[in-house]
């Protein structure tokens, strides 16, 4: 026979799923949130997102190529996602050099120093955001007023709902719930609109990129925890709806906590992880020094992921039901 046959162990067919396809699906799921950001912050949103992606991809290319001396890993698309997510986690109008620093930290330190995609312990975007928040607290919390609310005045700093809750809950007499849901209250670039982010969640679930376990348990835990507190003592800072729709909770629960690499493998593990994130988030929001706690919660639970993985085994065949 003129042609040599290929021999390999079974299976001989593949689903056709690739890392790239999953990453692209996540990017598509982020589009609604990006459109809201574009609508509220106009050019700033585009600029910050584009630069962030550029920095992340650039740093990844340079480090992989010249420091690690390997084949560039840009095509898998993970650096693009880190870029977008990091951009979504900073206020519009953040100085570019700070953004660049954040990208360098996220890609260089958090991701590539561990060996690249798949080997990092922490979610690069979350770690990048926290790095910036700790290093540049002033710049990271000066929220530009949304373009629709204040087009005339070029206001620099307006408080977020969570910030207000922390400082003077009584100022929040009328809850801007509808505005929060749609994304008209101040906040970081991509966390504005719960509605847009939920749209993304539906897309990810439909495409089977993620399962419901992590986002639903996080949101459920937050709602349940604050709901119980609210029943005991109906103060505005305990209102579960505010907690669900404010800050980075949606963005974190849907896009950051579900990061494949840094979340548990099994369903059991995912639920433990989600509950942990929910609890820590609420605890920080209510009793911590920061108004927002989702990033810290995710980072903390990222650290627990290997432990969770080693203690939660999937439900084995023949283990539970024997003669059911």
């Amino acid at each position: 026979m003129e042609q040599k046959l290929i021999v390999s162990p079974s299976p001989h067919i593949h689903s056709g799923d690739t890392i790239q396809k999953n990453m692209v699906a996540v990017l598509i799921a982020l589009i609604p949130a990006f459109l809201v950001a574009l609508y509220t912050f106009r050019l700033d949103a585009l600029l910050i997102t584009a630069l962030s992606v550029l920095f992340c991809v650039g740093f990844e290319y340079l480090i992989v190529r010249f420091v690690m001396k390997k084949e560039p890993t840009i095509p898998d698309g993970s650096a693009i996602i880190t870029g977008v997510l990091l951009a979504f986690n900073v206020p519009a109008g953040l100085p570019v050099w700070i953004l660049a620093l954040g990208c360098l930290f996220a890609i260089g330190v958090v991701k590539l120093s561990f060996g690249g995609l798949g080997n990092n312990i922490f979610n690069p975007a979350i770690a990048g955001r926290i790095f910036l928040l700790i290093s540049f607290p002033a710049q990271m919390t000066s929220w530009p007023a949304t373009a629709i609310a204040d087009t005339a005045t070029d206001a620099v700093s307006s408080a977020t709902v969570l910030g207000l809750l922390k400082q003077s809950p009584e100022a929040l007499e009328a809850l801007p719930l509808q505005q929060m849901f749609l994304g008209l209250e101040p906040g970081s670039l991509g966390e504005m609109s719960a509605a847009a982010l939920l749209l993304g969640l539906i897309f990810l679930l439909w495409k089977k990129v993620i399962t419901w376990h992590i986002p639903v348990t996080i949101l459920g835990t937050v709602a349940l925890f604050t709901g119980i507190l609210f029943l005991i003592d109906p103060l505005p800072q305990y209102n579960p709806l505010i907690h669900l729709f404010s800050g980075g909770l949606m963005l974190g629960a849907i896009f950051m906590a579900t990061d494949y690499v840094t979340s548990p493998l099994t369903k059991k593990g995912m639920i433990i992880y989600g509950v942990g994130i929910g609890f820590v988030t609420v605890a920080i929001r209510l009793w911590g020094a920061y108004p927002e706690g989702i990033s810290f919660a995710i980072l903390l639970m990222n650290a627990f992921t290997p432990l969770i993985n080693s203690y939660t085994t999937p439900k084995r065949f023949g283990e539970v039901v024997k003669n059911g």
């Binding site: 290929i6 390999s8 001989h12 593949h14 799923d17 690739t18 890392i19 999953n22 898998d76 060996g115 690249g116 995609l117 798949g118 080997n119 399962t211 494949y260 690499v261 840094t262 979340s263 548990p264 493998l265 099994t266 369903k267 993985n309 085994t313 999937p314 439900k315 084995r316 065949f317 283990e319």
Partner: peptide
Amino acid sequence: AKRKAMNDCIRCGKCVQVCPMGLNPTL
């Protein structure tokens, strides 16, 4: 017929979800 080049595991857990014996293939 040709297999595609392999990448590092991204821990997506899809193998765990599909294993009919409830094992953890990546581990």
